[in-house]
Nucleic acid binder design. Structure first.
Length: 682
DNA sequence: AATCTCACTTAGAATCATGAGG
DNA sequence: CCTCATGATTCTAAGTGAGATT
């Protein structure tokens, strides 16, 4: 460990105390809203907020390649007989054929919708013959695509290199735009290719044909005086407009739900990064209001008005259980899923006593993406009594909160705090949970393996709170088994090394010479190394098992303020030694730095958009502009990553031990808008 | 005040790339 | 060196919520 470097850290933290405390609202468009009272200024700034750019130039979307008809040898069979299809019908057939090994093709709704839409693409003659999906044989088509995928995998190094270069060229040409003079990466510059709609859960429209997007469907948004993108030869855009109050570059209406799809910037862009940062600032601001809000809704549990009571109970769930708002959905248009405000009587069960607790509410409902929310929670007595009241004389299909809508709830929240909506509670509670769990689970004296496990467990607590699940992978059991075998082998190696060490010690005692001494030292080091490796492996196994059905990525990407991770790392993690051999998953020599932290946030730091910089050349400086905790309570610095630039007079630099950038990078990777950058020690 | 429209965030699955280990 | 499991990235569906329209 490079202790010397750590001394600079201490000096840096001392300096922090002298940095004037930045008013919470400075420089943040979102938090200017604290100025609510002064009418005109508020209105003015609100309008100003709406302008997203002054200059926007891009090449338009890249269109999905045209359909390539099947080679002659690949045939579709109907009722056992080979049948040549028209190009249009064949294209749609390939959409189904390539999905043959997918569960979707076993679902009745999927099959019915597909067949219905497919027949629309057929010629009259084809329609005359093809009358039942059961008589359709797509197996040759399916095999063709399987073989094609296999062929791609075995390409030579050169061929793969060539493909990669082509993709890169495309990315360079269509993947960037110029926004206010800066080259910014676009998130999705390709139009979605045609295919069969893959709705989640019991989606009534699954299997329907999602038709090809044509230039004639696309609206282009760019500045008037920019180079207007050219539509592909022989085509026209639907419209070219110049609306600088929106972030999208292009849009089209999708054929399944008639909703609009947008081409937008990548999360590492300045605009997206600033919005993400604003989101976290709003969540931090809730810290100052949440106690009051909680006592308010507790009081409202006893309100005379049914509407108020329902709102108060719903808000309690949103706050305590991190439920989503639950907007109303048009039925028949999508899978039947609910959130808090749209809960129905059938989704909750009341138990006067369960699991040794009183007043237990059992939730069981399909949430976003039809992910099941199942939870049994003891609630406060008034909540329980209210639920009984809300459920009285209702059918299972009736709304639990029949006097409540997301609109009315959010309207109420607005009155409690500027910018407060239901989803802010999820962000707030997620980040608070991470912070609290990190504090509760980590000790400075823990081993590195234990610290990493603690970090992951804190992340996991958030994912569980937010109900972020994933399908258990088909290979889980096998890979777990492999890991256990590795652990067993390592254990034996440790035992062996321990015996050898004992032997060497005895030998050294007997001989007492330099040679036996160095042997002893060598053995000691070997044992240490093996023990460390064993510790890593068991952490991996524990982590893997605990993570079987939990998805950490979503919470890390969208809910956890990266500043918490950085603060934790600097307080505890910077003791991590340089990564030479690498722990599991920490082998990459790249650091991911969340772009949102690169935006001009602190006094004296004015960082431009991250893509201005050469990612390979940049080095990273960690600065800490304000001596407060994430939630504004306490002593630990809220840290901001800024860029090392010649002009950076403001930020306090923090040097890290050589190699520790990898740890920080591994820790931060997965946080929103990270861009991969090499972190060089200073 | 219900409903619709639009813009934007959040979500899990599918696919891709990479580096640890054979 | 090659393979293959894994984490990263891409994809696009499915949410939230503001504001316009009826």
């Amino acid at each position: 460990m490079r202790v010397v470097r750590l001394l600079r850290l201490r000096a840096a933290l001392t300096l922090l105390g002298e940095v004037p405390r930045r008013p919470a609202s400075r420089g943040v468009p979102g938090s200017r809203r604290t100025q609510k009272g002064s009418g005109t200024r508020w209105e003015e700034e609100k309008r100003e907020d709406r302008v997203k750019w002054r200059q926007l130039e891009h090449k338009g979307p890249y269109f999905a390649p045209p359909y390539e008809p099947l080679p002659n040898g690949v045939c579709f069979f109907y009722d056992g007989k080979p049948m040549r299809l028209s190009v249009k019908a064949e294209e749609v057939a390939t959409f189904y054929g390539r999905m043959l090994d997918h569960e979707y093709t076993t679902k009745e709704v999927f099959r019915k919708n597909f067949f219905n839409d497919w027949r629309k693409e057929m010629t009259a003659e084809e329609r005359e013959v093809i009358k039942s999906l059961d008589k359709c044989d797509f197996t040759e088509i399916h095999r063709y695509f399987v073989d094609k995928a296999a062929a791609r995998r075995v390409l030579t190094r050169e061929e793969k290199q060539k493909l990669k270069e082509e993709a890169e060229k495309l990315q360079q040409e269509f993947g960037y735009c110029i926004l206010d003079g800066h080259r910014e990466k676009i998130g999705n510059f390709k139009t979605e290719p045609p295919g069969l709609f893959r709705g989640r859960g019991d989606h009534p429209k699954m299997g329907m044909l999602k038709r090809r997007v044509m230039p004639e469907d696309v609206v282009i948004n760019c500045s008037r005086d920019s180079k207007i993108p050219k539509p592909p030869a022989g085509h026209q855009w639907k419209e070219v407009r110049s609306d600088n109050t929106v972030m999208w570059l292009a849009a089209w209406t999708e054929s399944i739900q008639n909703s609009i799809k947008y081409v937008m910037l990548n999360p590492c862009s300045k605009l997206k990064g600033e919005k993400a940062w604003q989101k976290f600032e709003t969540a931090r601001r809730l810290r100052g209001f949440v106690d009051e809000i909680r006592s308010q809704y507790r009081a409202d549990w006893k309100s005379q008005e049914m509407k108020t009571r329902q709102r108060a109970v719903a808000l309690y769930f949103i706050d305590k259980l991190a439920l989503r708002a639950g907007n109303e959905k048009e039925d028949g248009e999508a899978a039947d899923t609910v959130g808090c405000c749209s809960l129905r009587v059938e989704h909750v069960q009341l138990h006067p006593e369960a699991d040794g607790c009183q007043h237990v509410v059992e939730f069981d409902f399909p949430g976003k993406d039809s992910i099941r929310y199942y939870n049994r929670v003891p609630v406060e007595k008034p909540v329980y009594k209210n639920l009984q009241l809300f459920m009285k004389n209702k059918d299972p299909q009736d709304d639990l909160f029949d006097r409540l809508t997301t609109t009315s709830l959010n309207k109420h929240l607005h009155e409690l705090m500027d910018g407060l909506t239901a989803k802010v509670f999820r962000t707030y509670n997620a980040s608070v949970t991470l912070q609290e769990q990190l504090r509760a689970l980590t000790r400075a004296e823990d081993s590195i393996a234990a610290k990493i496990l603690s970090y992951n467990r804190a992340n996991r607590a958030v994912a569980i709170l937010c109900n972020h699940q994933r399908a258990t992978s088909s290979t889980f059991e096998k890979s777990m088994q492999n890991l256990q075998t590795k652990i067993q082998v390592k254990k034996e190696q440790v035992a062996e090394a321990r015996a050898e060490l004992r032997k060497a010690r005895a030998e050294h005692k007997a001989q007492g010479d330099g040679k036996s001494g160095s042997v002893l030292e060598k053995k000691r080091r070997l044992l240490e190394k093996l023990q460390e490796q064993l510790a890593w492996l068991s952490v991996q196994a524990t982590d893997k098992e605990e993570n079987k059905q939990v998805a950490l990525s979503t919470s890390k990407l969208n809910y956890l303020d990266p500043r918490i991770s950085i603060a934790w790392y600097v307080c505890l993690g910077s003791q991590f030694p340089p990564v030479a051999s690498g722990g599991p998953g920490f082998s990459r020599g790249l650091c991911s730095v969340p772009a949102l932290l690169l935006s001009p946030v602190s006094s004296g730091v004015s960082a431009g958009p991250p893509c201005d910089r050469d990612p390979d050349a940049a080095s990273c400086v960690i600065s800490s502009p304000c001596p407060e905790r994430w939630d504004g309570q306490g002593e630990v610095g809220v840290l901001t990553v800024a860029w090392d630039s010649a002009s950076s007079a403001g930020p306090v630099e923090l040097s890290l031990p050589t190699g520790s950038g990898r740890w920080l990078g591994a820790l931060l990777s997965g946080h929103l808008g990270h861009s991969r950058l090499s972190l060089t020690p200073r």
